[in-house]
């Protein structure tokens, strides 16, 4: 092999190391089927450290503004917060997470491409995934303003969500530990972290949600 070829080969190896660190076994486990919540791990919080403006937004939240009552998916992080059953599929440089609640489909880009400067703010935001060892790390920005949960805890367009996913074998079955940290300087005085455990249910499929508009 000549010197130029070695340089090209080395560059290619570097690219592979940066862009494809995923452990195929971990991906295979995540793609195995449906995962469902078995509860928080003691670090979930129902208390949010609201800023003054966040508190004002919280207190002015009204029932008739809640999109879920109209069967409109409220977006991240609330797509996750009901502990909805979910599944994962990796295809090329894209990860798709489907949530049963509200039939939400979420796309995470795994190609390392930078965010377009004019990216719009949307309910699910712009999510970029990467692997750190066997941990899947997802960063989400460009969220639209709304609520974190149905009680009206607010989120702003400045919110950043970091999620980590770790697959573990416990008690003869597979679980995925999901840690989600919400950073939102407009609404929270400090980041808020929730930790949840989901277990693999080989006997489950995601069911259609068939949402009914709720009247109050």
């Amino acid at each position: 092999m000549g010197r130029p070829a070695c340089i090209v080969f080395a560059v290619c190896l570097t690219h592979v190391q940066l862009g494809a660190l995923a452990n195929p076994q971990v991906i295979g486990k995540l793609e195995a089927g449906v995962w469902t919540s078995v509860g928080g791990l003691g670090t979930s919080t129902r208390e949010y450290p609201l800023t003054e403006s966040g508190r004002q937004r919280f207190e002015s939240f009204r029932l008739d503004r809640d999109p879920s009552l109209q069967c409109i998916p409220p977006g991240m992080p609330r797509g996750f917060s009901p502990r909805s059953p979910m599944d994962f599929s990796f295809e090329g440089d894209t990860l798709t997470i489907r949530y049963e609640t509200m039939d939400v489909v979420r796309t995470i880009l795994m190609d390392g491409a930078p965010l377009p400067p004019d990216a719009p703010h949307t309910p699910n935001g712009h999510s970029i995934g990467q692997w750190t060892g066997d941990t899947l790390v997802i960063d989400t920005t460009h969220l639209s303003a709304g609520e974190v949960n149905r009680n009206g805890i607010p989120k702003s367009e400045r919110m950043i969500i970091r999620e980590t996913y770790d697959v573990e074998d416990r008690n003869g079955g597979m679980v995925v530990i999901i840690r989600m940290t919400l950073t939102d300087p407009e609404n929270f005085t400090e980041p808020v972290t929730q930790t949840e455990m989901f277990e693999y249910r080989p006997d489950w499929e995601l069911l259609p949600f068939e949402c009914h508009v709720t009247e109050y």
Binding site: E47, F58, F61, L63, G152, Y216
Partner: peptide, 12 residues
């Protein structure tokens, strides 16, 4: 009472 405008539930 400062939460009285919130229509959902008092989880605390």
């Amino acid at each position: 009472a400062h939460h009285s405008s919130v229509p959902w539930y008092d989880l605390n």
